[in-house]
Amino acid sequence: MTRETLMAYLIGDLGADPSRLQDDTPLFSGGMLDSFRMIDLMTFIEGATGRQMDPVDVTLDNLDNMTSILAYVARKGRG
């Protein structure tokens, strides 16, 4: 998954605000996206890595901004 792919998904599918979206923008803790979008994001990540997420990986540390999402995907799979 590239930064551009992730950004396009966050903006186009999840409705993230493109004018505020930076690599370190807090997506969920900052209120840009809600919990329902978190489930969509996790589904998207599972599709990208080809692996189911482990419950211990479901944390804001892994999912709250683009940098941490890309790092998590790179660690887990097809990155």
């Binding site: 919990s35 978190m38 489930i39 996790m42 589904t43 599972e46 189911q52 997420m53 419950p55 479901v58 944390t59």
Partner: peptide, 15 residues
């Protein structure tokens, strides 16, 4: 897919 979404939602709620 519906079951997996449900599981992910439960995982997120639990966290």
């Amino acid at each position: 897919a519906a079951l997996r979404r449900h599981q992910l939602a439960m995982m997120w709620q639990a966290r």
